[in-house]
Design a binder for these strands. Structure first.
Lengths: 215, 215
DNA sequence: TTCAACTTGCACAGCGCTGTGCATGTTCCT
DNA sequence: AGGAACATGCACAGCGCTGTGCAAGTTGAA
């Protein structure tokens, strides 16, 4: 009963995956992209999509859940790998850097949130990240490392948008992809109210810690 | 030849205006909102829209141009009202505060930019703001008031998203509308790399300067 | 008051997208 | 090799939106 016969043929499973991958990219660019564009990007036909998903909404839902799961995993890993005495701002930097590895999925959630019909469904997934960010901001303020200019929840909301903006900057060519993770972390700390002179320490620590892990 | 007889009847002109107003709100929420929703929000019929605009695209274009003009005016006013010796960061704060008064239009441009078909048309309007922001960031760095962690163009791009994020926070209820202008300015300076301890000075100066002007 | 400008309702064509049925290959599994 | 699972092409219905034509009403201006 562990796993049923899930999917009988391997190629079908592979097609389903490349379909989800194509949808991830296509819908992150345009949440209203047609199924034809998605299928074509996956090297398949529109008709075939309905062999894997009963409706367009089912595809989007599966995709959103998958993305939400990935993001939740990132949060969990960062939480669990956190040393007892690690500075909250270093953890925050690590979170943003680690999150950058799943930016495509994070971005998908952000894009779907711009469509009223998916807003509530996405909101269930973004809660974790926001809560963790708020936690870290509060901890950062507790040790006097953050300037307090607005409520923590507002800060968390503003930080939430940073990776999305950075991604947009990369897409439009303003920012080099190699610098993106660092820029994200630096900006996130700045928005949180950190002293610019001390940001580098945390970000560098985060980058060296999180760098060693391959795909 | 100053003004032709432009529009013959006053009510028609008024309807056209309330149509544009409704479209501003509706399309800023959902760039794909139907003309029926727009007309209904203006207290008119879909059929009437085509009495004022030949096509949906014409409406959107007129709206985008109008919004772009408003934003450009804000930039011009802030530029011209700038005292010789004013600190660049104070000017930047003034820009963001003044821009907040036209946030709905600024936001419309931002929303339209998420739709591929309008992207290039919007880009013509956003150039001014970005250039001015970059100018101010460079000046701020020149007098040592800004921590340098990334290229100016990247900073300008990141600051560009701040008002939009703040507006979203207001819409979803995370932030009180009364604090929005201040939060925008504070966050913009933070992203630019200002010392948090000195941000208040510039923002307060900007708020008191720009506050006296009514609608 | 009278005419022109404007709004409205209805009806219709067109377009693009979704979702389905079916008949025909093609590919995997045993 | 055989049969089941899967992909494909085509045809079709449905839906929502755009854009147009026309025949009414309604309102502003002279």
């Amino acid at each position: 009963m562990d796993e049923r016969q899930q999917r009988r043929r391997r190629d079908a499973e592979a097609n389903r995956d490349s379909l989800l991958d194509a949808a991830l990219r296509a819908l992150a660019e345009d949440p209203d992209a047609g199924l034809d564009a998605v299928a074509r990007a996956a090297g398949l036909t529109r008709r075939t999509v309905y062999g894997h998903f009963p409706s367009r909404e089912a595809l989007v839902t599966a995709l959103a859940d998958r993305a939400g799961q990935a993001v939740a995993d990132v949060v969990r890993v960062v939480r669990e790998s956190r040393p007892e005495a690690e500075h909250p701002l270093t953890t925050l930097a690590r979170l943003e850097v680690a999150l950058w590895r799943s930016v495509e999925r994070y971005r998908l959630l952000g894009r779907l949130a711009t469509r009223p019909e998916h807003l509530e469904h996405v909101a269930r997934h973004t809660g974790n990240v926001r809560a963790f960010r708020m936690e870290l901001v509060e901890a950062g303020r507790a040790c006097g490392a953050l300037h307090t200019a607005m409520p923590c929840e507002v800060v968390a909301r503003l930080v939430q948008a940073v990776p999305l903006t950075v991604f947009d900057a990369v897409v439009e060519g303003t920012l080099d992809a190699g610098d993106a993770a660092r820029v994200t972390a630096v900006t996130a700390l700045a928005v949180a109210g950190a002293d610019p002179a001390r940001v580098d320490v945390h970000v560098d620590a985060a980058l060296t810690t999180t760098l060693g892990e391959p795909s």
